[in-house]
Every structure is written in structure tokens, then in C-alpha cells.
């Protein structure tokens, strides 16, 4: 029960997924959903320290807008490269500095960067605090600088949205 109180957000989210899957919100569905959620939360405990996960709704909106724009723009770019360049396309793997050491911030930032067409994180070196980003459709060095700037902005936004309270304040 203590775990449930500490992880009420996870529990509420799981219940929401359950209701969406059943396309219904009648008392019976909610009751059985609640039972399943309690079992799941009890069966899969998280490591201590991971419960400082916060979401700031305003920054989540900004992040979603930024992502949508980025994904749309680069989907078109990769499509253009596919049609116009094809075999002549060039790529690069560059080193990008990680601005946060918090586990879930690094994971989310890497995943979001991978979501955007034309870039993905090949590897992360936590000891040196860098990640390696693959960039498709490179024409010159300024393309690489653009990706570096983009991934820094992405990391800052993730930090502002999900980061632990103190760190987010120090970077904004």
C-alpha cells in the first residue's frame, strides 16, 4: 500500500491505459482495472531514488511541439535525400556532450533524439558524459553543428520537463 501511495502517478496512468484498451469506463471495468494495477505496482517495484520523476505540464507541451516540428521537418529531409541522393548520401557519427547525469533524463533525451528521422544515438558513454549521434544526410560541417545544437536543445527541454527540481532551476 505504501508503494501504491508513492507511485500513484504510475498507477493512475496504468488505469488510464486499461480503460483505453477496453474502450469503456463502467464500474466493473474500473474495479478490475484497479485490481490489475495494484498487482502490477506490487509485482514490479522500482529502485529507490527513481520516484523523483516529475512532469511539468507546460514544458511537456513545449517539448511535444518541438518534437512534432522536428520529426515532421526531418522526415521530409530524409525523404528528399532518399529520392534525390540515394546511394550518394553521406553520414557521420559525432560526439555530443550530455548535459545531465540523471538516468531517466539521459534515457528520454536519447530516445527522443533517436525518434527524429535522420539522427539516432549509437552509443552512450556515461563515464565520459557523452553520447554518439549518427547523422544522415551530411553535406558539410555546419550540418554537424546544427545537430549538436539540436541535441543540446532537446536535452535542455527534457531536463526542464522531467528533471529533478534543483537541476532544472540551475539550467533555466
Amino acid at each position: 500500500m505504501r508503494a501504491l501511495r508513492r507511485r500513484w502517478f504510475t498507477a493512475a496512468w496504468l488505469l488510464l491505459v486499461w480503460l483505453a484498451l477496453w474502450h469503456a469506463a463502467d464500474p466493473a471495468t474500473v474495479l478490475f482495472g484497479a485490481i490489475v494495477v495494484v498487482v502490477i505496482v506490487a509485482a514490479f517495484p522500482v529502485a529507490a531514488g527513481e520516484d523523483r520523476f516529475v512532469i511539468r505540464p507546460w514544458w511537456l507541451l513545449v517539448l511535444a511541439g518541438f518534437l512534432l516540428g522536428d520529426v515532421a521537418l526531418s522526415a521530409v529531409r530524409v525523404g528528399r535525400d532518399a529520392v534525390l541522393l540515394g546511394f550518394r548520401v553521406r553520414a557521420a557519427i559525432i560526439e555530443v556532450e550530455l548535459i545531465s547525469g540523471v538516468d531517466h533524463v539521459v534515457t528520454l533525451a536519447a530516445n527522443l533524439l533517436t525518434l527524429s528521422p535522420g539522427t539516432f544515438v549509437v552509443d552512450i558513454d556515461r563515464t565520459r558524459g557523452v553520447c554518439y549521434v549518427y547523422v544522415l544526410g551530411v553535406r558539410g560541417d555546419d550540418d554537424l553543428d546544427k545537430v549538436r545544437k539540436l541535441s543540446h536543445r532537446m536535452q535542455r527541454l527534457v531536463l526542464l520537463t522531467f528533471g529533478p527540481p534543483r537541476r532544472a532551476e540551475s539550467t533555466s
Partner: peptide, 21 residues
């Protein structure tokens, strides 16, 4: 466009971009 990329891009990593993104 993604399917065209799978056909035309030269190596595994670039084709991976075209299949997923």
C-alpha cells in the same frame, strides 16, 4: 518515401533510418 529510402540508401545504418523514422 521511407520505402524508397530502404531501396536507395547505401548501408545498414542509413537504411535503418529509412525503415524506422
Amino acid at each position: 518515401l521511407g520505402a524508397i529510402g530502404v531501396l536507395r540508401f547505401p548501408d545498414l545504418l542509413s537504411r535503418l533510418q529509412a525503415t524506422t523514422k
